[in-house]
Simulated scan of single mutants.
Amino acid sequence: MRKLLALGAAALAAQIASAAVPVQGYSIKATYPHDPQAFTQGLFFKDGYLWESTGQYGASSVRKVDLKTGKVLQKRDLPEKVFGEGIAPHGDSIVGITWMNQAGYVMDQGSFDIKGTFNYMGEGWGLTSDGERLYMSDGTPEIRVLDPRTFAEQRRIKVTADGQPLLQINELEWVDGQIYANVWQTDRIARIDPASGNVLGWIDLSGLAATARAGKDADNVLNGIAYDARSHRLFVTGKRWPKLFEIELRPKRR
């Protein structure tokens, strides 16, 4: 599926570039180490730590990471036949999804023991939580809203930018009432209104991959958003990036 979507990357870039949706820039407030082997799929900040999921068959894992040093403090490897995707917190658990297995899991935050599993149709890409509901992306312009207790689908958010469906919605993060979403294979984050599905703004992170010295692999793209709601800190990284950044958004521009 992602190989097919990659063919439309140029069209997607053209859609973003021509959109009237306002664009924000960024400045780097702090830089932290990040595991350059981590194929980042999901990321969130909780209890003073980063929690990260990684992908690739035979290399997928869930990790607890020290922000300042980048040291992996705790890790659970997923089965070799599983391609890990997004994760999100819920209570004392971590909920995770997989790419093609049509299965998710619930992991104890403390022990990393698997507490249960659940199923869904289609692919799994990104996952986040507003504290009451889970939001799941699958690469299409629709974000699924799930009950975190039963994992039943409650509704879908149809995401549009200037009235056009937004494809390749990937890693998600809940930030002050909005859904921030990486758009796969671009340097943009979309700020999405969860009620209407409208893209309220773009965050243009052009140049950040070069600053991170992300390497030449085509898959080493921007992916990973975490928000410290208490201190209002926004963190971003990418797949196999050796750096993670705390950024500050600049005023909107056209």
Rank of each mutant, 00 (worst) to 15 (best):
G124K: 01
W125H: 03
G126C: 09
G126N: 05
G126K: 04
L127P: 00
L127D: 05
L127H: 03
T128F: 04
S129C: 04
S129R: 03
D130W: 01
G131V: 01
G131P: 06
E132C: 04
R133E: 11
L134C: 06
L134N: 05
Y135M: 12
Y135T: 03
M136Y: 04
M136P: 02
M136T: 00
S137N: 08
S137Q: 07
G139T: 02
G139N: 02
P141W: 00
E142V: 01
E142Y: 13
I143R: 01
R144T: 11
V145I: 09
L146G: 07
L146V: 02
P148D: 09
P148R: 06
R149S: 12
T150A: 08
F151D: 03
A152Y: 00
A152C: 00
E153G: 11
E153K: 07
Q154P: 01
R155W: 03
I157K: 05
K158F: 10
K158S: 14
V159G: 05
V159T: 04
T160F: 01
T160Q: 09
G163A: 09
G163Y: 09
G163E: 12
Q164F: 12
Q164L: 12
P165R: 08
L166S: 02
L166D: 03
L167E: 05
L167W: 00
Q168C: 01
I169G: 00
N170A: 14
E171Y: 10
L172R: 07
E173P: 08
E173L: 14
W174M: 13
W174E: 09
W174F: 11
D176P: 08
D176V: 07
G177A: 13
G177S: 10
G177P: 08
Q178N: 15
Q178E: 15
I179N: 08
I179W: 11
N182S: 14
N182F: 14
V183N: 04
V183K: 04
W184V: 04
W184R: 10
Q185K: 15
D187P: 02
R188T: 11
I189A: 05
I189G: 11
